[in-house]
């Protein structure tokens, strides 16, 4: 099922056209690799989907319904979550506290509300189990590896029962072993029927997990094809402009 459809999306910042008539759709359980050079419009597109920006023209359908997000909270409520490159984690808190931040499970004693840590640890443990990650819920994030940190950030999206997860450079600046861990996390999301968009400069990572590849160049969509019908060489050529369109 098509969960997210972008129809003729354009976005201008003054005289600069960041996105030009982009039409793209996403199915549940599908991983889309979104590629392009710096300034090609990847981030702008993600921010429009996530409700940070409003498109200048074009429409977005989510689960076949037309949607308009004026702030990120509205996109999140629908089930669209973004995991940003900096992961937005608080290093001084535990993995569980990070996952549940602003959504803490509480016990009520009259007017006093107490955080129910044991329940949060239990649920966080299950989330990590679902993601097949060895992250400990009661460990502080500052002690964690890049892969585990990514698991915490992705764990947050599991809590909200996200249907679409947008990952911004999830494998940048982490070690090879941890890259494998993060790619495994993405596969787990896919297996659970979640649609994933991954933005990355690392060609091998994108090809390792993506079902489909979309390439943006100067705000235009120049390719949107199955990963197995493309190759890193072709995508590189599309990004640089050596091949006009595929």
């Amino acid at each position: 099922m098509e969960i997210l459809e972008l129809n003729n999306i354009s976005k201008s910042f003054g005289a600069i056209k960041a996105l030009d008539n982009v039409t793209l759709s996403l199915r549940s359980g599908e991983v889309l690799g979104l590629m392009g050079d710096n300034g090609a419009g990847k981030s702008t597109l993600i921010k429009i989907i996530a409700g940070n920006f409003k498109q200048s023209s074009g429409t977005i359908n989510f689960e076949k319904q037309k949607v308009e997000f004026s702030k990120p909270m509205e996109a999140r409520d629908k089930g669209i979550e973004v995991v940003y490159q900096d992961l937005a984690l608080c290093d001084n808190l535990t993995a569980a506290s990070n996952i549940f931040l602003t959504r803490e499970i509480k016990r009520n004693f009259g007017l006093i509300k107490i955080i129910n840590f044991s329940e949060m640890f239990k649920r966080a443990k299950n989330i990590f189990k679902d993601l097949k990650s060895e992250t400990l819920p009661d460990e502080e994030v500052k002690m964690m590896s890049g892969g585990q940190r990514q698991a915490v950030a992705i764990g947050r999206t599991k809590l909200s029962k996200a249907k679409v997860v947008l990952l911004d450079e999830p494998t940048a600046a982490i070690s090879v072993r941890q890259v494998a861990e993060v790619l495994e996390l993405i596969k787990q999301l896919k297996n659970q029927g979640i649609a994933v968009v991954i933005i990355s400069h690392r060609m091998p990572d994108v090809f390792a997990v993506s079902d489909r590849i979309a390439v943006l160049r100067r705000g235009q969509l120049v390719a949107n094809k199955l990963a197995k019908e493309s190759s890193p060489e072709e995508v590189t050529a599309l990004i640089t402009g050596a091949i006009e369109k595929a």
Partner: peptide
């Protein structure tokens, strides 16, 4: 308490706390 946790979250990563 949530209020207490929020003090630590804001001190740990103000930008993230705001985004969340």
């Amino acid at each position: 308490t949530v209020t207490g946790t929020n003090f630590y979250a804001v001190g740990g990563n103000p930008k993230a706390a705001r985004n969340i």
